[in-house]
């Protein structure tokens, strides 16, 4: 589904000291499953998500999604794909403060029909916050806001979910519940989870490790071996 070929993302291009957010990234992945992206702060984890989702254009290299180069698409086409095929979970939820919880969930589809509302209600129920459907974001805790963001990401049945530190604001129990939902969703779609907490990506079919903008294959293989060992 995704293929990244020699992807570089460079900041301060043209200046004396350029900064590589991503350096020569190559990988591909199938159309379903949970993929964890780990690494320390500033390693380029989020940059990978931004580049894959078309939010950022790589300085060089190609990002292919379903056979099409995302980086070569027109802005409107990229936006259309993001709206219809991708779901986003940002670290801090990024909710519209004047809309109710259920309306925030419905933002990507922008529909008013009973069908959409019911679907939003089911998602909120699954996430344990249905009773908060009429509340405004400022009335919610950090964890509750994040669950709303997750429901919003899933409302349009995306083929790909990009989750940037989705459990950062949650306690351990809530984090497990959220990851369980994402893992369940990854049975039928591709889910990328950026995190620095490896304990939450136990269900990942693959873990990609980033260090200073480059893939750290040593750690990736080590994690893979450990997980295979655990399964045995």
């Amino acid at each position: 589904m995704f293929e990244l070929k020699n992807v570089n993302l460079v900041y301060d291009l043209g200046k004396e000291d350029v900064t590589y957010a991503l350096k020569n990234i190559n990988f591909n992945c199938e159309d379903k499953g949970l993929i964890g992206i780990i690494g320390p702060s500033g390693s380029g984890k989020s940059s990978i998500l931004y580049v894959m989702s078309g939010l950022k254009r790589p300085t060089s290299g190609t990002v292919v999604y379903n056979g099409r180069s995302i980086d070569k698409m027109q802005l409107d086409m990229k936006a259309g794909i993001r709206l219809k095929e991708f779901g986003f979970i940002f670290q801090r939820g990024f909710l519209i403060e004047y809309l109710s919880v259920i309306d925030n969930v419905l933002v990507p589809v922008n529909e008013k029909g009973i069908e959409a509302k019911s679907k939003a209600a089911i998602l909120l129920d699954k996430l344990g916050i249905l009773k908060l459907a009429d509340k405004k974001p400022y009335q919610l805790s950090g964890g509750q806001r994040q669950r709303v963001a997750i429901a919003r990401a899933l409302i349009n049945n995306p083929k790909v979910v990009f989750a940037d530190e989705p459990t950062a604001a949650l306690d351990h129990k809530s984090a497990s519940e959220v990851m369980q939902i994402l893992a369940e969703y990854s049975q039928s779609a591709l889910v990328f989870v950026v995190t620095h907490d490896t304990s939450i990506i136990g269900d990942a079919v693959r873990v990609i490790s980033i260090w200073d903008g480059s893939l750290d294959l040593g750690i990736e293989n080590k994690i893979q071996n450990t997980r295979q060992g655990d399964r045995k």
Binding site: I96, Y98, L99, V107, N110, K112
Partner: peptide, 23 residues
């Protein structure tokens, strides 16, 4: 779920919704 309240007549990003929520 109190569908009567949560099911409103306007799209979340409609101008009317903004108007109602920012009276």
């Amino acid at each position: 779920m109190r569908l009567t309240k949560t099911i409103t007549e306007h799209k979340p990003l409609s101008a009317y919704k903004y108007f109602l929520n920012n009276k």
